[in-house]
Design a binder for these strands. Structure first.
Length: 894
RNA sequence: GCCGGGAUGGCGGAAUUGGUAGACGCGCUGGACUCAAAAUCCAGUGGUGGUGACAUCGUGGGGGUUCGAUUCCCCCUCCCGGCACCA
């Protein structure tokens, strides 16, 4: 065996071998050696966006998936781990503008490079299933499915709000709006209402919500976030009759509230600036028209709307309270959103914080109608009283609890035909239209005579031209006659093709299904999908906890209802990995902005305790500021190139570092020293095995020839205490590693392997140093090391497969390590005659006692009380009770 | 603003889920080897007091439940993720 660990050679030869035997090809219905069908295990990691090169988040994500894939293969599962590319999206267009290269070219180049990187990390991926969402053989099925949903009424046309850059005459993504201005032009962005296609996800809200309870393999936090996002609320629709002279088509103004019990506290109603009522009033009120214009500026995101200053204006119009018939002023307010509910709310300043703030600001009346269950309200109110309580000053409702009042309001209003109890969801329908080039074309043709006509199935896919280079001023498809002009499928007259493309979340909503059916050009999915799905382990960033996962769940249910699938949920188990962080160094730039520098460009300064305090830029020797750790990102310039790590230390080191440094769900802080530590450990493994390879080989030979048995003598403890102790430590570590592997806590799996190596090194050293231990008497140490190395390699293998495979075959262990079974704990090795118990007095540690494993409670208690330190602490005090926790501790309470 | 999560030595983290806080690793200190350095190996390493045995404090802050709390409950601070057109 080569004495020095050379990762490049080791990894090359392991990867060549895997490729030669097609080691990771996944086949349906695979059988084990006994002809029994294996259970399948489909591990899927969220597919990467091909941004250029792999980043550390990818390495982390795919290493987690790979560890689970390899572990399950050892456990006898028929595993499948695919990979693909989320290849449509904004960054390709931005790169195209910058480099004058078509997005298709840029994307293809990136995919080729990143694929090589993934392969160099040695992931057990079945590359025959690879897909890219920007290829027509994939996105054809987006279009096909869109048309099926359209037929079912699950896709419809409605207006939606977008950011409009008036200079570039283009729609901007939220990300491209910085402080209310276009990122390239600096122009103040306006809101615009444009027609968009929507997917009716709200129609599935009443299944998406309770079905979360059928997902025990999902993190609780993700389920809570999804449940809150869907946001079911039981409330009441309330109709406020319009004043007679209002003429807006509808006789009533509809609002929805979850606090119908506060109806008698309503003192005005507020409508969105885009509400028909506002628009009508603005026709004769120029100040109001100006206010509507003002509201068009500012952001469209919920965060911005929620934090903006609350502004409003009296429309001069009135509606009537449905129960008291009193007139209520209609205000228009920027905090009322047209997209939510009815675009109107009843305002109860006394019992709603937002309304209270608004009413106080504009001098609107405040009327209390709910008081605490036990007590009175202090009037006038200094703040809104938002708790549930008892109705007062509410006519027939006086004395009712909030719950009773809510119910009664619904009943009374229903009788008056002025409202009813209703369930609503916070969830909104999914707008999928994007006014962008690099995406899946929406398969619609606009005809002057026939309107919006679906593209017939036999004309799919609507292919996206791949040679266009966007310039930032609108969608280049609009300037491409060969794409734009077509014939109407219904009447044959010249027509115009839809130029909007689909949200990239559409692409990523079903790719994991397509992985099961590679190569099928006749159908979106086939029977194979029912073998592999659901995904047994889905892995991806926590940032996808809501949108991507919710859309995928929705999409799966729609496919099921169209008879394409038999499953209800796509992902049985979900692991949400944490972010990868690194130091951030910056300097104030000349133009007032902040310039960021990659940590490799910095000589880092540390204080006496090793904490980073700042540094100097290597190129100019001038100081830079340290602003702590943040997620690795292009904008902060703090990414670490995985390739550099692979080149210097090898893929196994990169993988081990990632797994050892943090548990998968937590954030991971990058550390060069940590990487070197991981490398050092692998070197130690290699060196130790190389030192003892002779013994292991010899033992394997003896076993093969039947000259020795694969078991240890019952009196090992007497014959070789060192090996006995080593075995106990190795099997204890193995038990821990197995437990942690099952719960996906890989950092402690790695530390278990370290403990195994430490135990073996100690035993080997001890035996040679000590006269009494008689080194390898009766070949017991050799036997122990043969077993220990075999266990260590199999436990380390899922994390660092190259080095383990190489050593495994060098030493001559049985078969190929990638198909070796996960080792079993030898319970006999763990048995101890005496147990170390902790003795406490009043919960404070005061000593330890060694007791026989079958000692009685009385004997333990007596020993504990006799312990000298314990005697000292209980002297002169009365013993109240003694708590004995078997196998753990004794607590004397005085 | 709303929803979710997190905080443990100088640092990353562990504590099999209410039972010895700090496993494992990094860093640091001392030693061995070396002309020297690197690499490697050995030892030490939460704070405070003490030569020492030992004592005492200690899991973001404050309160509570318990014989016993990093773990459970209430309040607070700071940090991170998401908020529907980044993916």
């Amino acid at each position: 065996m080569q004495e020095k660990y050379l990762p490049t050679d080791v990894e090359k030869s392991a990867q060549d071998h895997w490729q030669a035997i097609d080691a990771y090809k996944a086949v349906e219905n695979a059988q084990d050696r006994n002809g029994k069908e294996k259970k399948k295990f489909y591990a899927c990691s969220m597919l990467p966006y091909p941004s250029g090169k792999l980043h550390m988040g990818h390495v982390r994500n795919y290493t987690i998936g790979d560890v689970l894939t390899r572990f399950h293969r050892m456990r006898g599962y028929n595993v499948m781990q695919p990979m693909g590319w989320d290849a449509f999206g904004l960054p390709a267009e931005n790169a195209a503008m910058k480099n004058k290269v078509a997005p298709a070219q840029w994307t293809d180049d990136n995919i080729a490079y990143m694929k090589k990187q993934l392969q160099s990390l040695g992931f057990a991926i079945d590359w025959d299933r690879e897909l890219a969402t920007c290829k027509a053989d994939y996105y054809k099925w987006n279009q096909w499915f869109f048309l099926r949903m359209l037929e079912k009424g699950l896709v419809y046309l409605k207006t939606g709000t977008v950011n409009w850059d008036p200079v570039d005459q283009t729609v901007l993504a939220n990300e491209q709006v910085i402080d209310g201005r276009g990122w390239r032009t600096g122009a103040l962005v306006e809101k615009r209402e444009i027609p968009m296609y929507y997917m009716n996800i709200t129609a599935y809200a009443d299944e998406l919500l309770p079905a979360l309870d059928t997902l025990p393999g999902w993190p609780e936090r993700v389920k809570i976030m999804q449940a809150n996002w869907i946001g079911k609320s039981e409330g009441c629709e309330i109709h406020f009759p319009y004043n007679a002279e209002h003429n807006v088509g509808d006789p009533v103004l509809k609002v929805f509230t979850t606090r119908a019990d506060t109806l008698y506290g309503a003192t005005y109603v507020a409508v969105a600036p885009e509400h028909p009522l506002t628009l009508q009033a603005a026709k004769t009120d120029s100040a109001l028209a100006a206010f509507i214009e003002e509201c068009k500026r500012g952001g469209v995101t919920e965060a911005e709307l929620a934090t903006q200053e609350k502004k409003g204006m009296d429309t001069g119009l009135f509606v009537h309270h449905p129960l008291t018939n009193k007139p209520l002023a209609v205000w228009t307010a920027n905090y009322v959103l047209m997209g939510y509910g009815e675009g109107a709310v009843m305002a109860v300043p006394a019992h709603d914080e937002r309304d209270f703030e608004f009413a106080t600001k504009y001098g609107l009346p405040i009327k209390a109608a709910i008081k605490p269950k036990d007590g009175e309200l202090e009037l006038p109110l200094q703040a809104a009283f938002v708790d549930y309580g008892i109705c007062f000053d509410s006519e027939d409702f006086n004395g009712l609890t909030s719950a009773e009042a809510k119910h009664k309001t619904g009943v009374v209003l229903k009788a008056l035909q002025l409202g009813e109890l209703r369930t609503t969801y916070r969830l909104r329908d999914w707008g999928i239209s994007r006014q962008r080039y690099w995406g899946c074309p929406v398969p619609i043709i606009h005809c002057d005579a026939c309107g919006a006509v679906p593209v017939p199935d036999d004309q799919l896919p609507v292919k996206l031209p791949e040679n266009l280079v966007p310039d930032g001023s609108g969608n280049p498809l609009l300037k491409t006659p060969s794409f734009l002009n077509c014939d109407c499928p219904q009447c044959g007259k010249p027509a115009r093709r839809e130029t909007d493309t689909m949200d990239t979340f559409v692409d990523s909503s079903w790719y994991y299904l397509r992985f099961a059916c590679p190569g099928n050009d006749q159908a979106m999915v086939d029977e194979r999908v029912n073998y592999w799905l659901p995904v047994d382990q889905y892995i991806g960033g926590i940032e996808h906890a809501i949108l991507h996962l919710l859309y995928s769940r929705f999409w799966t249910k729609v496919m099921r209802d169209l008879g394409l699938l038999k499953i209800d949920e796509p992902f049985a188990n979900l692991l949400t990995q944490g972010m990868v962080l690194n130091d951030i160094f910056s300097r104030k730039g000349q133009s007032g902005g902040i310039d960021y520098y990659n940590p490799v460009e910095i000589d880092i300064a540390q204080d006496a305790q090793g904490r980073t305090t700042g540094g100097t830029l290597k190129s100019d020797g001038q100081p830079v500021d340290y602003s702590g750790m943040g997620t690795m990102s292009k904008s902060k310039m703090n990414g670490v190139d995985p390739q550099a790590i692979i080149n210097e230390f090898g893929a196994d080191t990169a993988r081990l570092f990632m797994m050892f440094t943090s548990p998968p769900e937590q954030t991971l802080e990058w550390s060069d020293a940590g990487v070197e530590g991981a490398f050092r450990f692998l070197k130690r493994v290699w060196a130790f095995v190389a030192d003892h390879a002779g013994w292991v080989k010899e033992e394997l030979q003896l076993l093969k020839e039947g000259k020795t048995e694969d078991k240890f003598p019952a009196d090992l403890k007497v014959r070789h205490p060192g090996v006995n102790l080593m075995r106990r430590e190795i099997h204890a570590a193995l038990r821990q590693a197995t437990f942690d592997m099952e719960r996906k806590q890989f950092n402690t799996v790695a530390s278990a392997v370290m403990k195994m190596l430490n135990a073996m090194r100690e035993a080997a050293t001890y035996s040679f140093d000590s006269e009494a231990a008689s080194s390898n008497a009766d070949g017991l140490l050799q036997k122990g090391l043969h077993e220990g190395v075999g266990i260590m390699l199999r436990v380390l293998y899922p994390i660092a497969p190259h080095i383990c495979c190489k050593i495994w075959s060098e030493l001559g262990y049985d078969g190929n390590l990638i198909d070796a079974p996960w080792p079993n704990v030898d319970e006999a090795a763990l048995v101890q005659d005496e147990i170390d118990l902790v003795v406490q007095v009043n919960g404070k540690l005061r000593g330890n006692i060694l007791v026989a494993k079958d000692a009685t409670r009385e004997a333990i208690e007596a020993m504990a009380r006799a312990h000298p330190t314990v005697e000292k602490f209980i002297a002169g005090l009365a013993i109240k009770k003694v708590i004995v926790v078997p196998g753990r501790l004794v607590n004397v309470v005085v």
